[in-house]
């Protein structure tokens, strides 16, 4: 085994907190959302007024949705004003050859086994930056906007309806928006599979402790294995 050459503090506490709160929220939102779409539990015995079976699942969905939104806004703030070089938007510059040029192509080639060596980034590599932009930034934004539009439906002219109600006609009605929100939820398990696989694989290939880095904050540079 190679010796640890350097310890790099990559994920600062705000990033790690964001990551785990986000993970918790997304899993809870997925589970509660799927339950709302298809309530599986048997109905309770007795009077309807005694129970809050469905209402509780919806309430949990809303509670975690608002935590998710707050957490997302906090992460945006951190990306823009945190002054954290591994957590800013800087890593994602789709308009610039410094991003889609050599670095991106090299990383894609490595993932496609077209190169023998693997580029190694301390922060996010360009492909990871793209995945996070699409799934986490665009995906969360869409789920938040559509979610708030639907949340506002029972209070016309209220805060949510006024600010996000335009989503409903944009997607051709409330039912279609519900459908697309539901379809969008499936981004989560797809993303989780790809994310976990990529992390574990990079840890095995690069040996940078990327898996534990989201708990400890530290990644490691190790010596090439002595030949």
């Amino acid at each position: 085994m190679g010796r640890i050459i350097e310890e790099i503090y990559v994920w600062r506490l705000p990033v790690r907190l964001y990551h785990w709160i986000n993970a918790l929220c997304m899993v809870t939102l997925f589970v509660t959302g799927m339950y709302i779409a298809a309530p599986l539990l048997s109905p309770p015995l007795g009077e309807a007024v005694w129970y809050k079976g469905m209402a509780w699942w919806r309430y949990m969905h809303f509670v975690f949705a608002f935590i998710f939104i707050a957490n997302f806004l906090f992460r945006l703030y951190w990306a823009l004003f945190g002054g954290d070089k591994y957590a800013r938007f800087g890593g994602f510059r789709p308009w610039s050859p410094s991003w889609w040029g050599t670095p991106f192509k090299e990383q894609v080639a490595a993932y496609l086994f077209l190169r023998s060596d693997e580029p190694n980034y301390v922060g996010h590599n360009p492909v990871a930056a793209l995945a996070h932009f699409l799934f986490i930034f665009c995906g969360s934004t869409f789920m938040i906007f559509s979610g708030l539009a639907m949340y506002g439906e029972n209070n016309p002219a209220g805060f949510s309806e006024t600010l996000f109600g335009w989503m409903i006609p944009l997607f051709g009605g409330s039912y279609t928006l519900h459908f697309i929100h539901h379809l969008g939820a499936w981004m989560l398990p797809i993303y989780v599979i790809m994310h976990l696989y990529a992390v574990v694989r990079h840890d095995v290939v690069d040996r940078t402790s990327v898996t534990s880095s989201i708990i400890t904050g530290y990644k490691h540079k190790v010596e090439e294995e002595p030949v």
């Binding site: 309530p39 309770p44 007024v49 079976g53 469905m54 029972n154 409330s174």
Partner: peptide, 26 residues
């Protein structure tokens, strides 16, 4: 959507007399 608010402001669900069963999960 160009509908009169007086009649199309809320969903059928919001004023449904079976809403209690929905909330209870029945």
């Amino acid at each position: 959507l160009g509908r009169p608010k007086a009649f199309y402001n809320t969903r059928i669900h919001d004023k449904c007399y079976r809403r209690a069963f929905f909330d209870a999960g029945m």
